[in-house]
């Protein structure tokens, strides 16, 4: 199978994730969309690794997974504490960080 198709799939997934981040208000969904974007990148990395015949891309994919895992831990904790204080998981409700 042509590895370029994996790249098309990665681009599609990234676009879906990006639109989800911009459109959805629920923090959990936004968070999931970010994960989707990260995984799209992982897919692209692995595909490029295959295309160029070296392992760099796969190594970076592992890094990304570790970072994503760490991010999930911190991100979910923030969302939970936000929900506890505001009884809402909408990102638009948390708009106090402005001048």
């Amino acid at each position: 199978m042509n590895p370029v198709n994996y790249l098309y799939l990665a681009a599609l997934l990234f676009t879906i994730g990006a639109s989800g981040v911009l459109i959805r208000r629920n923090a959990i969904v936004v968070f999931m969309c970010i994960e989707l974007m990260l995984n799209a990148c992982n897919l692209a990395f692995v595909a490029f690794s295959r295309m160029h015949g070296n392992l760099d891309g796969q190594i970076i994919a592992f890094f990304t997974m570790v970072v994503a895992a760490a991010e999930v831990v911190v991100g979910l904790a923030i969302i939970v504490s936000l929900f506890r204080s505001r009884h809402s998981a909408s990102v638009d409700d948390a708009s106090l960080m402005k001048l």
Partner: peptide
């Protein structure tokens, strides 16, 4: 300053 509206999605 008005650009800094605090909405995470507009920053995104």
């Amino acid at each position: 300053r008005t650009l800094q509206n605090g909405y995470a999605r507009s920053y995104a």
